[in-house]
Simulated scan of single mutants.
Amino acid sequence: MKRVRELRGRRGLRPGIGSPFQILLLACSFALAGYAGVRLLADDWLGVALWFVGAALLHDLVLLPLYSVLDRAVTGGLGAARHREWTSYVRFPAALSGLLLLVWFPLIGGRVDASYQGVTGLSADGFLARWLLVTAVLFGGSALLLALRLLRSATKRRSPDVH
């Protein structure tokens, strides 16, 4: 507590603004976001607004409770097994896999028009298999990292044999 008071005394209560480069970068990002918003809303502002509200409602009313329950189940299961610190090794690949599924759902689910191939020149086949492969690689890599961590911690705990 004393250390916090000393640091406040030296710096005062003034919030850090950042370097001029950071301020310039922030201003440019706001300008780019404003430009994109104006261009996006110029054509079909009602459709964009409905999509945005629908996406927010879908996330808040369906997806957030769903992945909160799943996270609670994983955390509880690993906590019951006394390995709660392993939670990140499940959360990370699950979050990336879920994000890929969310972004590419129409292609993964096979819900594309016949015009997709004509417009893109690509086949809509194989997205499910590739998503499953990426998911397996993510979980496999996470399991490998966990195994390496456990192996390293096991070798640190072991005392060297003295001959």
Rank of each mutant, 00 (worst) to 15 (best):
V103Y: 12
G37H: 04
L46C: 06
A94Y: 08
Y35S: 06
V90P: 05
A31E: 09
A42V: 05
G76H: 08
V134M: 10
L132Y: 00
P65I: 10
V119H: 12
V69Q: 07
I23L: 12
P65Y: 08
V53E: 00
D113G: 15
R130I: 05
P106L: 15
V48S: 07
A55V: 11
S68R: 12
L58S: 09
T120F: 11
L133Q: 04
G54D: 07
L78H: 00
H59T: 07
A42T: 04
Y35H: 11
T135P: 00
V103Q: 08
A27F: 06
G37C: 08
E85C: 06
Y116G: 04
L132C: 07
L32R: 00
R82M: 12
S68A: 14
H83S: 13
F92S: 06
R39A: 14
T135E: 02
L26P: 00
L70G: 09
P65A: 08
V38P: 00
G76D: 07
G37E: 04
G110V: 01
L64H: 12
S88Y: 05
V38R: 03
T87I: 12
L32T: 05
A95F: 11
A49Y: 08
L24W: 11
V53W: 02
L57W: 13
A55K: 06
S68K: 10
L138Q: 02
T120K: 06
T120C: 08
V38C: 01
A49L: 15
L63K: 09
L64N: 07
R91E: 05
D125V: 01
C28H: 08
G37F: 05
G121I: 04
V74K: 03
Y67P: 00
L70I: 13
V74D: 02
L70A: 14
P106E: 08
G110H: 01
D60G: 15
L100T: 04
L26M: 07
